[in-house]
Simulated scan of single mutants.
Amino acid sequence: MRTEPAEATTTCVSNGTHEDLPVLDAPHEIPPRDARALSKVFFQELAEREEGTEGHQYVRNTLIEMNMSLVVYAAGRFRSRGQEREDILQVGMVGLIKAIDRFDLSREVEFATFAVPYIVGEIKRFFRDTTWAVHVPRRLQEARVELAKATDELSARLGRAPRTSELAPVMELSEEEVVEAQVAANGYTSTSLDATIAGGDSEEDDAALADLMGEEDPALALFEEFHTLAPLVDALAPRDRLLLHLRFVEELTQTQIGERLGVSQMHVSRLLARSLNQLREGMVEPGTDG
């Protein structure tokens, strides 16, 4: 049964400096239609109360509870975002409180009309600033929203996924900017590499996402070897480093090296062999087989 506004006032409380105030039982349970009518009365009361008094605080808190349905309504727009509903409601309450503190009866506008944009704006800001898996510039976050709208609109009209060239004029962006927005949209959500991917009828066939992505890079082992080798080469004598450079960087033959340095090919061979053995021994860790 619907509670009438007149029946909602049951008892009174004194704020110590102003006349007695009406007290509502369970303000959050008042139907929206009654809440709209009562809100006008309570906003008049709020304007007359001195901020910081018990009466002012009571009126403000009652307005918040009476209009919680506006938060529930606004939060419903975001139920497909994958965020906990309680988190969205809490953020929406912040928007409701801001709207109550800034509402002015003299504007002659319904409070619900004034409050919903505050609530929605606060929720959008929450998603924009805190729910992206990676940091994305704000202009691209906003472009992602426009991209989703334009994609839905054109998909319905064309009966297929729209091309970049078709999205650009609708979004009033260049094709390069549309592509940039599409790439940025990939940063909105993320999946753990430990996420289980069903692979068959039994749990034994399941695999982690990491097992299905990427492969070993053979260059990685080479990089590690170069990283270990560099200080060993630096420790060689200058002449030995020159020989290695001529042989393996300039790719000269031992005979050509001998002619350049004025020594025999046999001597070049012995010097290279000695340097390579020294490097090989340095590459082998203690306690391992060479």
Rank of each mutant, 00 (worst) to 15 (best):
V170N: 05
W132R: 02
S165L: 10
E176C: 10
A99C: 06
T113R: 09
A184C: 08
R125T: 15
R102W: 08
A161H: 13
R144C: 02
M93F: 03
L140G: 03
E177D: 15
A143F: 04
D129T: 10
K98A: 10
R144P: 00
Q141P: 01
L154G: 12
F103D: 00
L105E: 13
V179E: 07
A161Q: 15
G187M: 03
R107T: 11
L96Y: 00
L147M: 12
V116E: 01
K98L: 12
R160G: 11
E166N: 11
E176L: 14
V145G: 04
A115V: 07
P169T: 09
A181S: 04
K124H: 07
K98M: 13
A185L: 05
E175S: 13
V178E: 02
V136Y: 02
A181L: 06
E110A: 15
V134D: 08
L173S: 06
E180W: 01
A185P: 01
S174K: 12
I123Q: 02
I119L: 05
V136N: 00
P169E: 11
E108Q: 14
S165V: 13
D104W: 06
R138F: 02
D152W: 14
R139Y: 14
E122A: 11
D129H: 07
F114M: 08
P137Y: 03
A133Y: 03
I97F: 06
D129L: 10
P117E: 14
N186P: 00
I119T: 06
L173R: 15
E142H: 08
A156H: 12
R144N: 09
P162K: 07
V134W: 03
G121I: 07
A184M: 05
E108F: 09
L173N: 04
K149L: 15
E153W: 10
I100D: 03
N186T: 07
L167I: 08
R107F: 10
E122Q: 14
E175I: 11
A168P: 08
E175N: 09
F111W: 08
V120G: 04
V94N: 00
A168N: 09
R107E: 14
F103N: 02
S174L: 11
Y118I: 03
I97K: 05
L167T: 06
V145C: 05
